[in-house]
Simulated assay, not measured.
Amino acid sequence: MSRKETMKIIHTPAVPAPRGHYSQAVEQNGFVFLSGMLPASDTIDPATHDFRQQCEAVFHQCQQVLQAAGCGFGDVVQATAYLVGVENWSLFNEIYASYLGPHKPARAVVPVPALHHGYAVELQLIACVPGGV
């Protein structure tokens, strides 16, 4: 069986469909790889929604995609966050901890000068499907 045959595309209508040539997530060999998630443009406007609101939207979207893959935040093994403005790091950390609780996966936080569509946060996750490895 080829790798492509074992790859499973994860999609949930609870999150806006990608506007580019990529999937919301892909499951392969017991791991789920979530694409970088920006706040949903149909509900969050970077000109009027602050950093906290943008983070809450991103975490909610990630939660929906993880659920569609049979996972939760407790199954996340690695997270990469891109933040516009290093001054947002502590607020991001507070919101991150509220969603992940005592679970502490590997993580990188990358301050960047800008993100697509003017958003201030993007989150990319890798999770392990319970019983999948």
Rank of each mutant, 00 (worst) to 15 (best):
M1V: 10
E5P: 13
T6I: 13
K8N: 06
K8S: 02
K8C: 14
I10C: 10
A14G: 09
A14Q: 04
V15D: 05
P16E: 15
P18M: 09
R19Q: 05
R19C: 10
R19E: 08
G20L: 13
Y22D: 07
S23C: 15
A25G: 05
V26T: 09
V26R: 05
N29E: 15
N29M: 09
G30A: 02
G30S: 14
V32T: 12
L34W: 09
G36Y: 08
G36R: 08
M37V: 13
M37S: 08
L38T: 03
P39S: 02
D42A: 03
T43R: 15
D45Q: 00
T48K: 01
H49S: 09
D50P: 03
R52K: 09
R52H: 12
R52C: 13
C55D: 01
A57K: 01
V58E: 01
H60N: 15
Q61P: 02
Q61F: 13
V65H: 02
L66K: 09
Q67L: 07
Q67C: 07
C71F: 15
V76G: 07
V76Q: 06
A79Q: 07
T80C: 15
A81H: 01
L83F: 03
V84K: 14
E87N: 03
L91D: 10
F92P: 04
F92Y: 15
E94W: 10
Y96L: 11
Y99M: 04
L100E: 01
G101T: 05
A106D: 10
R107C: 11
A108T: 04
V109E: 02
V110G: 08
A114T: 15
G118H: 00
G118R: 01
A120E: 06
V121I: 10
E122D: 14
L123E: 09
A127P: 07
A127C: 05
C128G: 08
C128M: 10
C128V: 12
G131R: 11
G132Y: 06
